[in-house]
Design a protein around this nucleic acid. Sequence first.
DNA 1: CCCAAAGTGGTACCTAGGTACCTGTTTATC
DNA 2: GATAAACAGGTACCTAGGTACCACTTTGGG
Lengths: 235, 235
Amino acid sequence: MTSDHNDYPRYIQALQQSSFLKDSKAEALDQLLSQMTAEQWRAKTFRNSMDVATTFHFIVSGRLKVYKSNPDTGREHTVFVLSKGDVFDVLSLLDTEPNDVYWEALDTLEVLKIPMDQMRLWINEYPVMHKAIISYLGERMQQLMNIATDVTLHSTLVRLAALLLKNINGETRKLELINNLPNDEIAGLIGTTRSVVSRHIQELKRVGAISVSRRKINVKNLEVLLAIAEEKHLP
Amino acid sequence: MTSDHNDYPRYIQALQQSSFLKDSKAEALDQLLSQMTAEQWRAKTFRNSMDVATTFHFIVSGRLKVYKSNPDTGREHTVFVLSKGDVFDVLSLLDTEPNDVYWEALDTLEVLKIPMDQMRLWINEYPVMHKAIISYLGERMQQLMNIATDVTLHSTLVRLAALLLKNINGETRKLELINNLPNDEIAGLIGTTRSVVSRHIQELKRVGAISVSRRKINVKNLEVLLAIAEEKHLP
DNA sequence: CCCAAAGTGGTACCTAGGTACCTGTTTATC
DNA sequence: GATAAACAGGTACCTAGGTACCACTTTGGG
Protein backbone atom coordinates (compact mmCIF):
# COMPACT_ATOMS: atom_id res chain seq x y z
CA MET A 1 0.00 0.00 0.00
CA THR A 2 1.27 3.47 -0.89
CA SER A 3 1.03 6.57 1.29
CA ASP A 4 -1.48 8.23 -1.06
CA HIS A 5 -4.04 5.59 -0.12
CA ASN A 6 -7.32 7.05 1.13
CA ASP A 7 -7.26 5.28 4.47
CA TYR A 8 -3.50 5.60 5.04
CA PRO A 9 -3.74 8.07 7.96
CA ARG A 10 -6.38 5.92 9.63
CA TYR A 11 -4.23 2.82 9.26
CA ILE A 12 -1.13 4.55 10.63
CA GLN A 13 -3.17 5.68 13.60
CA ALA A 14 -4.37 2.11 14.22
CA LEU A 15 -0.78 0.82 14.16
CA GLN A 16 0.37 3.54 16.53
CA GLN A 17 -2.33 2.57 18.99
CA SER A 18 -1.24 -1.08 19.03
CA SER A 19 0.41 -2.16 22.28
CA PHE A 20 2.35 -4.65 20.19
CA LEU A 21 4.09 -1.82 18.33
CA LYS A 22 4.09 0.76 21.11
CA ASP A 23 7.85 1.36 21.10
CA SER A 24 8.21 1.69 17.34
CA LYS A 25 9.27 4.90 15.60
CA ALA A 26 7.07 6.59 12.97
CA GLU A 27 9.37 5.73 10.09
CA ALA A 28 9.44 2.08 11.11
CA LEU A 29 5.64 2.02 11.05
CA ASP A 30 5.61 3.71 7.63
CA GLN A 31 7.97 1.07 6.36
CA LEU A 32 5.75 -1.65 7.82
CA LEU A 33 2.51 -0.26 6.42
CA SER A 34 4.06 0.05 2.95
CA GLN A 35 4.31 -3.76 2.89
CA MET A 36 0.75 -4.36 4.06
CA THR A 37 -2.57 -5.03 2.36
CA ALA A 38 -5.99 -4.15 3.76
CA GLU A 39 -8.69 -6.82 3.95
CA GLN A 40 -12.30 -7.03 5.13
CA TRP A 41 -13.78 -10.05 6.89
CA ARG A 42 -17.58 -10.23 7.00
CA ALA A 43 -19.12 -11.14 10.33
CA LYS A 44 -18.93 -14.89 11.01
CA THR A 45 -16.13 -15.63 8.58
CA PHE A 46 -13.54 -17.80 10.24
CA ARG A 47 -10.04 -19.14 9.71
CA ASN A 48 -8.00 -21.81 11.45
CA SER A 49 -4.31 -22.03 12.28
CA MET A 50 -3.44 -23.44 8.85
CA ASP A 51 -5.03 -20.51 7.04
CA VAL A 52 -3.32 -17.80 9.05
CA ALA A 53 0.08 -19.44 9.61
CA THR A 54 1.68 -17.65 6.64
CA THR A 55 0.17 -14.19 7.17
CA PHE A 56 0.36 -11.83 10.12
CA HIS A 57 -2.64 -9.61 10.88
CA PHE A 58 -3.32 -6.29 12.61
CA ILE A 59 -6.88 -5.38 13.54
CA VAL A 60 -8.00 -1.91 12.45
CA SER A 61 -11.64 -2.17 13.50
CA GLY A 62 -14.20 -4.78 14.54
CA ARG A 63 -13.99 -7.69 16.96
CA LEU A 64 -12.47 -11.13 16.51
CA LYS A 65 -12.82 -14.12 18.81
CA VAL A 66 -10.02 -16.61 19.28
CA TYR A 67 -11.38 -19.99 20.30
CA LYS A 68 -10.89 -23.73 20.48
CA SER A 69 -13.66 -26.18 19.79
CA ASN A 70 -14.53 -29.83 20.24
CA PRO A 71 -15.98 -30.93 16.89
CA ASP A 72 -17.58 -34.02 18.46
CA THR A 73 -19.77 -32.09 20.86
CA GLY A 74 -19.85 -28.70 19.18
CA ARG A 75 -18.73 -27.02 22.41
CA GLU A 76 -16.54 -23.95 22.03
CA HIS A 77 -14.33 -22.02 24.44
CA THR A 78 -13.38 -18.48 23.53
CA VAL A 79 -9.95 -17.56 24.84
CA PHE A 80 -9.68 -13.93 23.72
CA VAL A 81 -11.76 -11.28 22.04
CA LEU A 82 -9.40 -9.13 20.01
CA SER A 83 -10.13 -5.62 18.75
CA LYS A 84 -8.46 -2.48 17.39
CA GLY A 85 -4.68 -2.62 17.87
CA ASP A 86 -4.53 -6.36 18.55
CA VAL A 87 -2.57 -8.74 16.34
CA PHE A 88 -2.75 -12.39 15.30
CA ASP A 89 -1.32 -14.95 15.26
CA VAL A 90 1.62 -14.30 17.53
CA LEU A 91 2.32 -18.01 18.03
CA SER A 92 2.75 -18.60 14.29
CA LEU A 93 5.09 -15.63 14.26
CA LEU A 94 7.27 -17.44 16.80
CA ASP A 95 7.28 -20.61 14.73
CA THR A 96 5.90 -22.80 17.46
CA GLU A 97 4.20 -26.06 16.61
CA PRO A 98 0.82 -25.45 14.98
CA ASN A 99 -1.93 -25.16 17.55
CA ASP A 100 -5.42 -25.82 16.31
CA VAL A 101 -7.16 -22.61 17.13
CA TYR A 102 -9.93 -20.80 15.26
CA TRP A 103 -10.51 -17.12 14.58
CA GLU A 104 -13.95 -15.78 13.82
CA ALA A 105 -15.12 -12.23 13.14
CA LEU A 106 -17.85 -11.10 15.51
CA ASP A 107 -18.57 -7.97 13.44
CA THR A 108 -17.29 -6.76 10.11
CA LEU A 109 -13.55 -6.84 10.63
CA GLU A 110 -10.92 -4.64 9.03
CA VAL A 111 -7.40 -6.06 9.09
CA LEU A 112 -4.02 -5.14 7.67
CA LYS A 113 -2.06 -8.19 6.61
CA ILE A 114 1.56 -8.90 5.77
CA PRO A 115 3.35 -12.13 4.81
CA MET A 116 4.77 -13.80 7.91
CA ASP A 117 8.35 -13.86 6.54
CA GLN A 118 8.31 -10.14 5.89
CA MET A 119 7.00 -9.51 9.40
CA ARG A 120 9.87 -11.58 10.83
CA LEU A 121 12.41 -9.62 8.78
CA TRP A 122 10.90 -6.33 9.92
CA ILE A 123 11.14 -7.41 13.57
CA ASN A 124 14.79 -8.37 13.18
CA GLU A 125 15.51 -4.92 11.78
CA TYR A 126 14.09 -3.29 14.92
CA PRO A 127 15.56 -5.08 17.94
CA VAL A 128 13.44 -3.03 20.34
CA MET A 129 10.57 -5.22 19.12
CA HIS A 130 11.93 -8.23 20.99
CA LYS A 131 11.26 -6.54 24.31
CA ALA A 132 7.82 -5.46 23.13
CA ILE A 133 6.98 -9.03 22.12
CA ILE A 134 8.20 -10.38 25.44
CA SER A 135 6.02 -8.02 27.45
CA TYR A 136 3.06 -8.71 25.16
CA LEU A 137 3.48 -12.46 25.67
CA GLY A 138 3.91 -12.01 29.40
CA GLU A 139 0.65 -10.15 29.67
CA ARG A 140 -1.21 -12.70 27.58
CA MET A 141 0.27 -15.55 29.61
CA GLN A 142 -1.04 -14.06 32.79
CA GLN A 143 -4.51 -13.71 31.27
CA LEU A 144 -4.38 -17.29 30.05
CA MET A 145 -3.43 -18.55 33.49
CA ASN A 146 -6.52 -16.90 34.92
CA ILE A 147 -8.74 -18.27 32.17
CA ALA A 148 -7.27 -21.74 32.67
CA THR A 149 -8.03 -21.85 36.38
CA ASP A 150 -11.28 -19.84 36.44
CA VAL A 151 -13.42 -22.70 35.23
CA THR A 152 -12.43 -25.02 38.06
CA LEU A 153 -12.15 -22.43 40.81
CA HIS A 154 -15.40 -20.51 40.29
CA SER A 155 -19.03 -21.27 39.47
CA THR A 156 -20.58 -20.15 36.20
CA LEU A 157 -22.56 -17.37 37.93
CA VAL A 158 -19.40 -15.97 39.49
CA ARG A 159 -17.59 -16.14 36.14
CA LEU A 160 -20.46 -14.33 34.41
CA ALA A 161 -20.49 -11.54 37.00
CA ALA A 162 -16.70 -11.23 36.73
CA LEU A 163 -16.92 -11.08 32.93
CA LEU A 164 -19.39 -8.20 33.09
CA LEU A 165 -17.27 -6.32 35.64
CA LYS A 166 -14.12 -6.79 33.58
CA ASN A 167 -15.79 -5.17 30.58
CA ILE A 168 -17.41 -2.17 32.19
CA ASN A 169 -15.98 1.15 31.16
CA GLY A 170 -15.01 3.04 34.31
CA GLU A 171 -16.63 6.31 33.24
CA THR A 172 -19.60 5.55 31.04
CA ARG A 173 -20.47 2.44 33.06
CA LYS A 174 -21.38 0.81 29.78
CA LEU A 175 -20.24 -2.61 28.67
CA GLU A 176 -17.44 -2.57 26.12
CA LEU A 177 -16.06 -5.26 23.83
CA ILE A 178 -18.66 -7.85 24.79
CA ASN A 179 -21.80 -5.83 24.34
CA ASN A 180 -24.37 -6.92 21.79
CA LEU A 181 -23.17 -10.50 21.91
CA PRO A 182 -25.78 -13.28 21.90
CA ASN A 183 -25.92 -15.65 24.88
CA ASP A 184 -24.06 -18.19 22.75
CA GLU A 185 -20.95 -16.07 22.60
CA ILE A 186 -21.09 -15.08 26.25
CA ALA A 187 -21.29 -18.78 27.09
CA GLY A 188 -18.13 -19.45 25.07
CA LEU A 189 -16.33 -16.70 26.99
CA ILE A 190 -16.97 -18.24 30.39
CA GLY A 191 -16.68 -21.84 29.25
CA THR A 192 -20.27 -23.00 29.58
CA THR A 193 -23.39 -23.41 27.43
CA ARG A 194 -25.94 -20.89 26.21
CA SER A 195 -28.76 -22.19 28.38
CA VAL A 196 -26.76 -21.74 31.56
CA VAL A 197 -26.00 -18.15 30.58
CA SER A 198 -29.67 -17.53 29.88
CA ARG A 199 -30.61 -18.89 33.31
CA HIS A 200 -28.01 -16.75 35.07
CA ILE A 201 -29.07 -13.63 33.20
CA GLN A 202 -32.61 -14.22 34.50
CA GLU A 203 -31.17 -14.52 38.00
CA LEU A 204 -29.11 -11.32 37.67
CA LYS A 205 -32.17 -9.46 36.40
CA ARG A 206 -34.22 -10.84 39.30
CA VAL A 207 -31.77 -9.50 41.93
CA GLY A 208 -31.60 -6.14 40.12
CA ALA A 209 -27.93 -6.39 39.14
CA ILE A 210 -28.58 -5.89 35.43
CA SER A 211 -31.29 -5.11 32.92
CA VAL A 212 -31.46 -6.25 29.33
CA SER A 213 -32.92 -4.36 26.40
CA ARG A 214 -32.49 -5.15 22.72
CA ARG A 215 -29.59 -7.56 23.30
CA LYS A 216 -27.73 -5.00 25.37
CA ILE A 217 -26.89 -5.71 28.98
CA ASN A 218 -26.98 -2.68 31.30
CA VAL A 219 -25.35 -2.89 34.68
CA LYS A 220 -27.79 -1.56 37.29
CA ASN A 221 -26.11 -2.41 40.55
CA LEU A 222 -22.34 -2.71 40.68
CA GLU A 223 -22.31 -3.65 44.37
CA VAL A 224 -24.46 -6.74 43.87
CA LEU A 225 -22.40 -7.75 40.86
CA LEU A 226 -19.19 -7.34 42.87
CA ALA A 227 -20.59 -9.38 45.75
CA ILE A 228 -21.42 -12.20 43.37
CA ALA A 229 -18.05 -12.06 41.61
CA GLU A 230 -16.25 -12.20 44.95
CA GLU A 231 -18.41 -15.08 46.13
CA LYS A 232 -19.78 -13.05 49.03
CA HIS A 233 -23.31 -13.40 47.68
CA LEU A 234 -25.33 -15.93 49.68
CA PRO A 235 -28.34 -17.00 47.61
CA MET B 1 29.14 -19.80 44.70
CA THR B 2 32.72 -20.45 43.65
CA SER B 3 33.87 -23.06 41.15
CA ASP B 4 35.52 -25.15 43.85
CA HIS B 5 32.11 -25.98 45.28
CA ASN B 6 31.46 -29.71 45.60
CA ASP B 7 28.31 -29.70 43.48
CA TYR B 8 29.56 -27.16 40.93
CA PRO B 9 29.83 -29.63 38.01
CA ARG B 10 26.37 -30.99 38.74
CA TYR B 11 24.91 -27.48 38.83
CA ILE B 12 26.58 -26.50 35.55
CA GLN B 13 25.17 -29.63 33.99
CA ALA B 14 21.68 -28.75 35.22
CA LEU B 15 21.93 -25.25 33.74
CA GLN B 16 23.16 -26.62 30.42
CA GLN B 17 20.17 -28.92 30.25
CA SER B 18 17.70 -26.07 30.73
CA SER B 19 15.72 -25.19 27.62
CA PHE B 20 15.57 -21.65 28.97
CA LEU B 21 19.35 -21.34 28.62
CA LYS B 22 19.85 -23.63 25.67
CA ASP B 23 21.61 -21.07 23.45
CA SER B 24 23.98 -19.80 26.14
CA LYS B 25 27.75 -20.24 25.95
CA ALA B 26 29.70 -22.05 28.67
CA GLU B 27 31.38 -18.91 29.98
CA ALA B 28 28.04 -17.14 30.26
CA LEU B 29 26.73 -20.01 32.36
CA ASP B 30 29.84 -19.92 34.55
CA GLN B 31 29.33 -16.23 35.09
CA LEU B 32 25.65 -16.87 35.95
CA LEU B 33 26.37 -19.71 38.37
CA SER B 34 28.99 -17.61 40.16
CA GLN B 35 26.18 -15.27 41.26
CA MET B 36 23.86 -18.04 42.44
CA THR B 37 23.10 -19.70 45.75
CA ALA B 38 21.86 -23.25 46.22
CA GLU B 39 18.77 -23.89 48.34
CA GLN B 40 16.74 -26.91 49.42
CA TRP B 41 12.97 -26.92 49.75
CA ARG B 42 11.48 -29.77 51.76
CA ALA B 43 8.44 -31.49 50.23
CA LYS B 44 5.25 -29.45 50.75
CA THR B 45 6.95 -26.12 51.37
CA PHE B 46 5.29 -23.43 49.32
CA ARG B 47 5.77 -19.82 48.28
CA ASN B 48 3.46 -17.33 46.63
CA SER B 49 4.14 -14.62 44.06
CA MET B 50 5.15 -12.09 46.72
CA ASP B 51 7.84 -14.41 48.10
CA VAL B 52 9.43 -15.22 44.77
CA ALA B 53 9.06 -11.84 43.03
CA THR B 54 12.55 -10.70 43.94
CA THR B 55 14.43 -13.95 43.28
CA PHE B 56 14.73 -16.04 40.14
CA HIS B 57 15.01 -19.83 40.49
CA PHE B 58 16.40 -22.76 38.48
CA ILE B 59 15.38 -26.28 39.38
CA VAL B 60 18.26 -28.75 39.79
CA SER B 61 16.23 -31.73 40.99
CA GLY B 62 12.79 -32.57 42.33
CA ARG B 63 9.31 -31.54 41.21
CA LEU B 64 7.45 -28.30 41.81
CA LYS B 65 3.78 -27.62 41.09
CA VAL B 66 2.58 -24.19 39.97
CA TYR B 67 -1.04 -23.67 40.93
CA LYS B 68 -3.84 -21.26 41.69
CA SER B 69 -6.32 -21.80 44.46
CA ASN B 70 -9.66 -20.57 45.69
CA PRO B 71 -9.21 -20.06 49.44
CA ASP B 72 -12.98 -20.03 50.02
CA THR B 73 -13.55 -23.53 48.71
CA GLY B 74 -10.06 -24.99 49.03
CA ARG B 75 -10.12 -26.03 45.37
CA GLU B 76 -6.80 -25.95 43.55
CA HIS B 77 -5.83 -26.09 39.89
CA THR B 78 -2.29 -27.06 39.00
CA VAL B 79 -1.10 -25.33 35.85
CA PHE B 80 2.37 -26.81 35.48
CA VAL B 81 4.61 -29.38 37.11
CA LEU B 82 8.17 -28.14 36.79
CA SER B 83 11.31 -30.27 37.11
CA LYS B 84 15.05 -30.32 36.33
CA GLY B 85 15.96 -27.50 33.94
CA ASP B 86 12.78 -25.48 34.48
CA VAL B 87 12.80 -21.96 35.90
CA PHE B 88 10.46 -19.74 37.90
CA ASP B 89 9.02 -17.18 37.95
CA VAL B 90 9.31 -15.98 34.39
CA LEU B 91 6.43 -13.52 34.76
CA SER B 92 8.11 -11.71 37.66
CA LEU B 93 11.23 -11.55 35.52
CA LEU B 94 9.22 -9.66 32.90
CA ASP B 95 7.92 -7.25 35.49
CA THR B 96 4.26 -7.93 34.77
CA GLU B 97 1.62 -7.14 37.35
CA PRO B 98 1.81 -9.59 40.27
CA ASN B 99 -0.29 -12.64 39.63
CA ASP B 100 -1.32 -14.60 42.67
CA VAL B 101 0.11 -17.99 41.94
CA TYR B 102 1.55 -20.54 44.36
CA TRP B 103 4.54 -22.83 44.08
CA GLU B 104 4.79 -26.00 46.13
CA ALA B 105 7.48 -28.67 46.21
CA LEU B 106 6.14 -32.15 45.47
CA ASP B 107 9.40 -33.79 46.54
CA THR B 108 12.58 -32.46 48.10
CA LEU B 109 13.51 -29.69 45.70
CA GLU B 110 16.98 -28.42 44.88
CA VAL B 111 17.06 -24.92 43.37
CA LEU B 112 19.69 -22.39 42.39
CA LYS B 113 18.58 -18.85 43.11
CA ILE B 114 19.74 -15.42 42.04
CA PRO B 115 18.38 -11.93 42.82
CA MET B 116 15.91 -10.85 40.12
CA ASP B 117 17.84 -7.66 39.30
CA GLN B 118 21.04 -9.57 38.70
CA MET B 119 19.20 -12.00 36.46
CA ARG B 120 17.83 -9.08 34.42
CA LEU B 121 21.32 -7.61 34.07
CA TRP B 122 22.72 -10.95 32.98
CA ILE B 123 20.03 -11.29 30.30
CA ASN B 124 20.76 -7.83 28.93
CA GLU B 125 24.41 -8.77 28.59
CA TYR B 126 23.50 -11.73 26.39
CA PRO B 127 21.01 -10.54 23.76
CA VAL B 128 20.58 -14.06 22.40
CA MET B 129 18.57 -14.65 25.58
CA HIS B 130 15.70 -12.51 24.28
CA LYS B 131 14.98 -14.99 21.53
CA ALA B 132 15.26 -17.88 23.97
CA ILE B 133 12.77 -16.21 26.30
CA ILE B 134 10.37 -15.55 23.45
CA SER B 135 10.36 -19.16 22.32
CA TYR B 136 10.05 -20.35 25.92
CA LEU B 137 7.01 -18.09 26.44
CA GLY B 138 5.50 -19.16 23.12
CA GLU B 139 5.67 -22.80 24.09
CA ARG B 140 4.18 -22.17 27.52
CA MET B 141 1.40 -20.06 26.01
CA GLN B 142 0.39 -22.87 23.76
CA GLN B 143 0.30 -25.27 26.69
CA LEU B 144 -1.77 -22.79 28.69
CA MET B 145 -4.26 -22.42 25.86
CA ASN B 146 -4.83 -26.16 25.88
CA ILE B 147 -5.16 -26.26 29.65
CA ALA B 148 -7.61 -23.35 29.54
CA THR B 149 -9.94 -25.01 27.07
CA ASP B 150 -9.54 -28.65 28.15
CA VAL B 151 -11.83 -28.31 31.12
CA THR B 152 -14.80 -27.13 29.08
CA LEU B 153 -14.19 -29.21 25.97
CA HIS B 154 -13.55 -32.62 27.54
CA SER B 155 -14.94 -34.74 30.37
CA THR B 156 -12.88 -35.57 33.45
CA LEU B 157 -12.35 -39.17 32.31
CA VAL B 158 -11.01 -38.01 28.94
CA ARG B 159 -8.72 -35.50 30.66
CA LEU B 160 -7.38 -38.19 33.02
CA ALA B 161 -6.64 -40.56 30.14
CA ALA B 162 -4.95 -37.74 28.21
CA LEU B 163 -2.87 -36.83 31.27
CA LEU B 164 -1.61 -40.39 31.60
CA LEU B 165 -0.78 -40.60 27.88
CA LYS B 166 1.06 -37.28 27.95
CA ASN B 167 3.33 -38.55 30.72
CA ILE B 168 4.22 -41.99 29.42
CA ASN B 169 7.84 -42.42 28.45
CA GLY B 170 7.96 -43.72 24.88
CA GLU B 171 10.50 -46.44 25.61
CA THR B 172 10.05 -47.62 29.18
CA ARG B 173 6.26 -47.18 28.99
CA LYS B 174 6.45 -45.94 32.57
CA LEU B 175 4.79 -42.81 33.86
CA GLU B 176 7.16 -39.89 34.31
CA LEU B 177 6.78 -36.62 36.18
CA ILE B 178 3.36 -37.46 37.63
CA ASN B 179 4.11 -40.87 39.06
CA ASN B 180 3.75 -41.44 42.78
CA LEU B 181 1.32 -38.54 43.15
CA PRO B 182 -1.71 -39.00 45.41
CA ASN B 183 -5.17 -38.69 43.85
CA ASP B 184 -5.35 -35.17 45.29
CA GLU B 185 -2.56 -33.93 43.08
CA ILE B 186 -3.80 -35.73 39.99
CA ALA B 187 -7.18 -34.06 40.56
CA GLY B 188 -5.51 -30.64 40.64
CA LEU B 189 -3.80 -31.38 37.33
CA ILE B 190 -7.04 -32.07 35.48
CA GLY B 191 -9.10 -29.48 37.33
CA THR B 192 -11.40 -31.69 39.35
CA THR B 193 -11.66 -33.19 42.84
CA ARG B 194 -9.95 -36.17 44.41
CA SER B 195 -13.08 -38.27 44.62
CA VAL B 196 -13.75 -37.98 40.91
CA VAL B 197 -10.21 -39.12 40.17
CA SER B 198 -10.62 -42.05 42.52
CA ARG B 199 -13.83 -43.07 40.75
CA HIS B 200 -12.23 -42.82 37.30
CA ILE B 201 -9.18 -44.82 38.40
CA GLN B 202 -11.56 -47.60 39.48
CA GLU B 203 -13.18 -47.41 36.03
CA LEU B 204 -9.82 -47.53 34.21
CA LYS B 205 -8.76 -50.52 36.29
CA ARG B 206 -12.08 -52.22 35.52
CA VAL B 207 -11.61 -51.92 31.74
CA GLY B 208 -8.00 -53.10 32.04
CA ALA B 209 -6.40 -49.84 30.91
CA ILE B 210 -4.25 -49.47 34.01
CA SER B 211 -3.24 -51.22 37.22
CA VAL B 212 -2.27 -49.58 40.49
CA SER B 213 0.25 -50.85 43.02
CA ARG B 214 1.76 -48.93 45.91
CA ARG B 215 0.62 -45.52 44.62
CA LYS B 216 2.11 -46.18 41.19
CA ILE B 217 -0.08 -46.29 38.13
CA ASN B 218 1.00 -48.76 35.44
CA VAL B 219 -0.41 -48.45 31.97
CA LYS B 220 -1.62 -51.87 30.82
CA ASN B 221 -3.46 -51.11 27.60
CA LEU B 222 -2.45 -48.08 25.56
CA GLU B 223 -5.16 -48.67 22.94
CA VAL B 224 -8.01 -48.43 25.43
CA LEU B 225 -6.46 -45.35 26.98
CA LEU B 226 -6.11 -43.73 23.56
CA ALA B 227 -9.70 -44.56 22.66
CA ILE B 228 -10.89 -42.88 25.85
CA ALA B 229 -8.67 -39.82 25.36
CA GLU B 230 -9.93 -39.38 21.81
CA GLU B 231 -13.53 -39.80 22.93
CA LYS B 232 -14.01 -42.91 20.78
CA HIS B 233 -14.76 -44.99 23.86
CA LEU B 234 -18.48 -45.75 24.11
CA PRO B 235 -19.23 -46.82 27.66
C1' DC C 1 5.86 -50.98 70.57
C1' DC C 2 1.58 -48.49 71.10
C1' DC C 3 -1.36 -44.84 70.04
C1' DA C 4 -2.57 -40.50 68.00
C1' DA C 5 -2.68 -37.87 64.13
C1' DA C 6 -2.06 -37.11 59.59
C1' DG C 7 -2.48 -38.90 55.05
C1' DT C 8 -4.87 -41.53 51.41
C1' DG C 9 -8.56 -43.77 48.94
C1' DG C 10 -13.61 -45.54 48.24
C1' DT C 11 -18.47 -44.48 47.66
C1' DA C 12 -23.59 -42.87 48.65
C1' DC C 13 -25.86 -39.00 47.99
C1' DC C 14 -27.00 -34.59 45.97
C1' DT C 15 -26.74 -30.41 43.06
C1' DA C 16 -24.69 -27.36 39.39
C1' DG C 17 -24.84 -27.23 35.00
C1' DG C 18 -25.69 -29.59 30.39
C1' DT C 19 -29.20 -31.52 26.92
C1' DA C 20 -33.31 -31.20 24.50
C1' DC C 21 -37.31 -29.08 23.35
C1' DC C 22 -40.01 -25.23 22.83
C1' DT C 23 -41.49 -20.30 21.72
C1' DG C 24 -40.69 -15.87 20.02
C1' DT C 25 -38.09 -12.65 16.87
C1' DT C 26 -35.39 -11.14 13.06
C1' DT C 27 -33.78 -11.59 8.25
C1' DA C 28 -34.12 -13.06 3.50
C1' DT C 29 -36.94 -14.33 -0.75
C1' DC C 30 -40.36 -13.84 -4.00
C1' DG D 1 -46.08 -7.91 2.58
C1' DA D 2 -46.48 -12.96 3.25
C1' DT D 3 -43.75 -17.07 4.30
C1' DA D 4 -39.81 -19.63 5.25
C1' DA D 5 -35.56 -20.03 7.28
C1' DA D 6 -32.29 -18.71 10.37
C1' DC D 7 -31.49 -16.83 14.76
C1' DA D 8 -32.15 -15.94 19.68
C1' DG D 9 -33.71 -16.90 24.26
C1' DG D 10 -36.47 -19.60 28.06
C1' DT D 11 -37.03 -23.77 30.81
C1' DA D 12 -38.09 -28.94 32.28
C1' DC D 13 -35.55 -32.69 32.82
C1' DC D 14 -31.46 -35.40 33.69
C1' DT D 15 -26.58 -36.66 34.48
C1' DA D 16 -21.56 -35.67 35.35
C1' DG D 17 -19.15 -34.48 38.83
C1' DG D 18 -18.80 -32.38 43.63
C1' DT D 19 -19.66 -32.94 48.85
C1' DA D 20 -19.55 -35.54 52.83
C1' DC D 21 -18.67 -39.42 55.27
C1' DC D 22 -16.25 -43.53 56.13
C1' DA D 23 -12.41 -46.93 56.45
C1' DC D 24 -7.85 -48.11 55.93
C1' DT D 25 -2.84 -47.07 55.98
C1' DT D 26 1.34 -44.64 57.10
C1' DT D 27 4.09 -41.63 60.11
C1' DG D 28 5.89 -39.86 64.31
C1' DG D 29 6.23 -39.15 69.37
C1' DG D 30 6.53 -41.04 73.96
